[in-house]
Simulated scan of single mutants.
Amino acid sequence: MQDSPGTGGLRRSAPVSRRDALRLATAVSALAGLGVAAASAGAPRASAAAPTLIDFAQRQIPARDIRSAGHSGVINYVSTSRPGSTFGAKPITLPYARELTAAGLVIVSNFQYGKPGGTAPSDFTRGYAGGVADARTAWQLHTAAGGGRSAPVFFSVDDDIDRNAWNTLALPWFRGINSVIGVQRTGIYAGINPCQWAIEDGVIGRSGTPGRAWAWQTRSWSRGQVHPAAVLYQRIVSTASNPGPVVGGIEVDVNDVLAQDCGQWNMHP
């Protein structure tokens, strides 16, 4: 993967001091109890002590199980299942969103329909017109489930792409998304380079936390680095060879909250 020309500010995760650990433990309580993400902007990045959100597709996990496992909320899909598959958590529904909210859990929206090697091609390969269509679908499902009118949707680049693929495929797709919901409501899920390119090209919005953008970064394809503008970091990616933790009977991915404003619905009515 080509290096971005603007990645000089990247840094590896820092160790957690005792004071930071205590502060972040308090943040976890506030996040779960009040529904407001409270990880300090100055907190160590990708730290296991940070508040965490889980993402999953197989089925809806009861809110009580998420709380019992110590997580502060979910990143849930505002997209439907690909042909030939049936994922119970796609899309998020209004009753489930209400259950999560009533339990004091926060919700962040993500769109992913296609997948590399799947029954539908990767969404970012569908160009400007595909971005328009995907944004319309995402926003309809997001608002139908009670998502905030100013909340972002994180659109997935779930592949290890180079700068040429970004320029010719993903960038036009994001511009199509922008044409429907605007830059400020557009976020990205990706490895570190596409997150950087999305910021440079001005196709994702800014968090209310200073210095942060709507970048949900996965550890995949990120070479152990965390972008300083990311609001979420997917620290555990569940795979067949490396399963994630089990919550409510299914394996999940785990994401560290890196900013007070990570795009959660309740902060963006």
Rank of each mutant, 00 (worst) to 15 (best):
T101C: 08
T119N: 14
L105R: 02
L141N: 01
S122L: 14
A190Y: 01
L105H: 04
W166V: 02
A144N: 12
A165H: 07
R67S: 14
P121D: 13
Q140S: 15
V108F: 04
A145V: 04
T125S: 15
I161Q: 02
I181H: 04
W166E: 01
T119D: 14
N178G: 07
G73M: 03
T137N: 13
N110K: 15
A89M: 08
V74F: 06
R98G: 10
A69T: 10
K115M: 15
Y113S: 02
T168V: 14
W166T: 05
R136C: 08
A133I: 07
T119R: 12
L94P: 02
S72N: 14
P194W: 05
F87W: 13
T86H: 15
G73P: 03
L169M: 13
G191L: 00
N164T: 15
L100W: 01
N76T: 12
A144L: 12
R126G: 02
D158C: 11
I177R: 00
G182K: 09
A138P: 04
G118T: 06
V153M: 03
S156T: 14
Y113V: 09
A120C: 11
S179H: 12
G88I: 07
I161L: 11
I107F: 05
G127D: 10
F87D: 10
D123M: 08
R175S: 06
I181M: 12
L171D: 04
L94G: 10
P152N: 05
N110V: 15
S109P: 05
N167L: 14
S109Y: 10
V153E: 04
T80P: 03
G187R: 01
S150V: 12
R175E: 09
A170P: 01
L100T: 03
P91I: 06
L141Q: 11
F124T: 02
G131N: 03
E99N: 12
Y189D: 05
T186A: 12
V157M: 11
G130I: 00
A135G: 03
I66Y: 01
I107Q: 03
V78W: 01
D134Q: 11
P172L: 06
G182Q: 11
F155C: 06
Y77H: 13
G127A: 08
S156G: 11
A190D: 01
A129Y: 13
Y128I: 09
T186G: 08
G88P: 06
V108E: 00
A133C: 07
S109Q: 10
